[in-house]
Amino acid sequence: MSTKPSNIGRWIGAIIAAIVLVAVSFVGFRAFNARAHANAELQSGAQSPQSDTAAQSGTQSGDAPQSAQPTPVDVPKPTPPPNLYAGGQIGAQATSQWYVDLWAYAFNTGDTEDLMKVCQVEGYCDAFAHDLERMHTDSYLVKPLTNQYLQTNKIYECSLQKAGTEGICVEFTFLQTPAVFRYLTEEKASEEYDTISTVTGEEINNEQTLFRVLFLEERGDTWVVTHIWDH
C-alpha cells in the first residue's frame, strides 16, 4: 500500500510537500520480518491467555499554523504500564504494550533513547532510529501518529529453533492512525526511507487495526523485543 509522496502545496511562498508517514509495520516491518522469519522458525509451548489491556500513546492535533516558524506539536512522553518489571509472562505482556507506546513517541518526536532500550531487533532498530533522525531534521510534525493497544490475544513460552533462544511470544492487536509531517523543500519530501513508508492523502485519517507478534527475551530484570512478525 506504499505510495510516493504526492500532495504538493504552497507554503509561505515556498513549495513544500505534505506527506503522511505511517508505521513501518505496513512496509518496513514486512520486508524486514520476511528475512527474520526465513532465518528462525518459531516453536511455541503451552499457551496461557492474558486479560485484555488498553493504553493510548500520542495526542491528536490539527494542522500546524501557517507561519515562518512552525509551532511544535506537543507529544507527551508515555507512562510505563503497570507490571513492566513484574517478570514472567505478566512482565512480557506489559513490555509489548510499552514497546508500542515508545514506538509511537519516537516516531512523532525523533527521540529514540527509551525505544532503543527495548528494541533489540537486529537490522531494524538502528535503521529505524537513523531514518527518524533524518526525517525530523528535514521536516516537522503536523499531526501525531497514534497507537492504541487494544488487547493481548495470546501469550506463551516459545523458542527460535535456529537461534537457540528461549523467550515469550506475545500476540496482540492495536489501533493506529497515520501521522502528518511537512517538509520545507520538495527535494527532501521526495527522499525515501528504509523503515518508513507513506500513504495517500485520502488515507490520512484512516484508522487501522493491526496484528503483531513480538518475541521477547529476558535481560536481567527486564524484557526486550528481539523479533517481530506482522500478520
Score class of each variant (00 low, 15 high):
65 P>M: 05
65 P>D: 04
67 S>H: 05
67 S>E: 13
68 A>H: 07
69 Q>E: 08
69 Q>T: 12
70 P>R: 09
71 T>P: 00
71 T>A: 09
73 V>I: 11
74 D>I: 05
75 V>A: 06
82 P>H: 06
83 N>M: 12
83 N>Y: 14
84 L>F: 14
84 L>S: 13
85 Y>R: 15
89 Q>I: 13
90 I>W: 09
91 G>R: 01
92 A>F: 02
95 T>L: 04
98 W>D: 07
98 W>Q: 13
99 Y>F: 14
99 Y>A: 12
101 D>S: 14
103 W>G: 09
103 W>Y: 12
107 F>E: 11
112 T>C: 15
121 V>G: 09
123 G>A: 00
125 C>G: 12
125 C>V: 09
127 A>Y: 00
128 F>L: 09
132 L>F: 02
134 R>Q: 12
136 H>L: 12
138 D>T: 15
140 Y>C: 01
142 V>M: 02
146 T>E: 10
148 Q>A: 12
156 Y>A: 08
157 E>A: 04
158 C>A: 14
159 S>P: 01
160 L>H: 02
161 Q>L: 11
163 A>R: 09
164 G>V: 04
165 T>S: 15
167 G>F: 03
167 G>T: 03
171 E>A: 10
174 F>D: 07
175 L>Y: 00
176 Q>W: 00
178 P>M: 02
180 V>C: 04
182 R>N: 13
182 R>V: 09
184 L>H: 08
184 L>Q: 10
187 E>D: 07
